[in-house]
Nucleic acid binder design. Sequence first.
DNA 1: CTGAAAGCGCTTACAG
DNA 2: CTGAAAGCGCTTACAG
Lengths: 342, 342
Amino acid sequence: MGRSATTLTDVARAAGVSLSTASLAFSGAGPISSATREKVLAAAAELGYHGPDPVAASLRRGRSGVIGVVMGSAVRRSFRDPVSIQFLDGIVTTLATQGYGTLMLPASGSDEAPGSLLTHGAMDAAVLMAGAVTSTRTIEALRARGLPTVQIGGTGRQGASVRARDKEGMQMLGEHLRERGHTRVAVATLPWQSGAQPGPVDAGTTRRPAAPITARRLDGLRAAGVEPVAIWQCASLVEEGIAAGRALLASRPTALVGFSDLIAAGLLIAAREAGLRVPEDVAVAGFDGIDLPWLGEDTLTTLVQPIADMGRHAAEAALTLAAGGTAKSLSVDVELRVGTTT
Amino acid sequence: MGRSATTLTDVARAAGVSLSTASLAFSGAGPISSATREKVLAAAAELGYHGPDPVAASLRRGRSGVIGVVMGSAVRRSFRDPVSIQFLDGIVTTLATQGYGTLMLPASGSDEAPGSLLTHGAMDAAVLMAGAVTSTRTIEALRARGLPTVQIGGTGRQGASVRARDKEGMQMLGEHLRERGHTRVAVATLPWQSGAQPGPVDAGTTRRPAAPITARRLDGLRAAGVEPVAIWQCASLVEEGIAAGRALLASRPTALVGFSDLIAAGLLIAAREAGLRVPEDVAVAGFDGIDLPWLGEDTLTTLVQPIADMGRHAAEAALTLAAGGTAKSLSVDVELRVGTTT
DNA sequence: CTGAAAGCGCTTACAG
DNA sequence: CTGAAAGCGCTTACAG
């Protein structure tokens, strides 16, 4: 059962004190003499009692001590991007220092009912990882329960969010590319909406992506006066970046921009594969600022996001919400890091 | 608080039934007429009640509905290997289908006290990911609470474990290399013990690695008659594999074996970097069978583990233990997949 | 098929 | 500083 047979009542009896006093010895939430505490702790050790049952304490306190983290898609897919892992690291680490647990929640697909964990799992608040943002059913299932949420990369319009200044970042990159004389820029974006399949997008479209991150990054490029000669949407995976690169090179671009570093790595591989020199024949840039130790000599020109910090902020916002407070949305700066690929 | 203000008692009153009947309407754990159930559900919908409080239900049932997963090290580091992610995917997915949640537990370092989540988090059992296996303090903290554990990659000596037949696999690889005529084999192993720093290991040592996976894989090579000309221990990361490769090439090997695919990818990069042709000048092989889309034309010769299956088995064992049953240890077969690198 | 009662193990006002 | 009491919200024998 994962629960020891001896309870706080047993410990109190063995120590010759009341239940409330025994509770205080463990929680320290009230005045207690150190002699009494020692007595209780000794009795507990004697009985093999390892502290109050967390479930019972949760019920009494009215809080589960758990924050849910909703992944963008299946764990396997979602966490192939180191960015997700660093977010998760920031979240888990921050919550752990507050004694809070992190519950993994598989997001439901856009066409399937939310899982029982989402509808009935014990938690006080939830963090929605970037890819989960546009999965409406997931958000609605959480809202229906009255659970406060924090979105990473969201719009901030529905509850608290933590996001990067994507537009400002991409604008910096766009200006950097224009300074370098690039006029033909092809772009491999993130998906325009949740569940979108990889493939071309009409470069002249006036439709704005439903996914906020994709929309903001595209806005940034355009704000710099960069009008893409070709657009390909794909997930943040190296293989999808490679496929995007192969397709985009047909438009004879002088620069390739990936909306993530993993995508950009794929673009770079596709360019090399085509026998092109980088950056002489074609420049390549990404977004994220992660380590790609397998990329060889090149270091990618990219926009560095403070990823672990963002995870930390999201966790802190979730804790505030769990405690009944209100959390404000937060935008963090990104930094242009010029590597060898532009 | 993450808890709606209305309770099952309110719903029962509104529906004009008893508390026990209202409970049955949600759980279906006893006989109830469908008319009555409808009445209760309608009252619940009316009141905005979204089902029984999971914490209260857990207390009453005596089970938290949560399984902890202890990572090998910090999330950030541990999950840079896709193998860990696939394990986690298998675990989370399997548990979710049973309505069970997955709690992320950062392992404590070998020299620090176990975190409060480990000592006081609500869970019914725990799964220890490969790297966590030799972290004695972590295991002891869990055992002290009376929590049953399942180890991935463990020895099976302390509780249930799910592991690959590492030795048999490596023996197959050793024989494959010998058939190809290799006599000078250099090896980049996984760490010999928890927390070991990357670096050389005396190839002639008779000391056996404390880490069971490392020990079994080395045993397998030797069982095939392969006596390494040089050994370097490192974590399963591409950059550590690259460093290992640079060092190991000094021993003029005709074959390089990495104890993980990530390490082997690093070895391959180091070989290319040294201007060596693979496999003509030097062969390279790994262990795991993961996708490495950034590796270029080459496909790694490797031992394929059924990783997601192993995660699934571990989750099922944990569920059995959580229900008070006993779980047996399990070994799964690995398969030699010959690629272009040997 | 439905209801009344007990109790899961704890924390927290409250009284002394 | 310590103790007696209430109650967190639910599920499950048990009786009818």
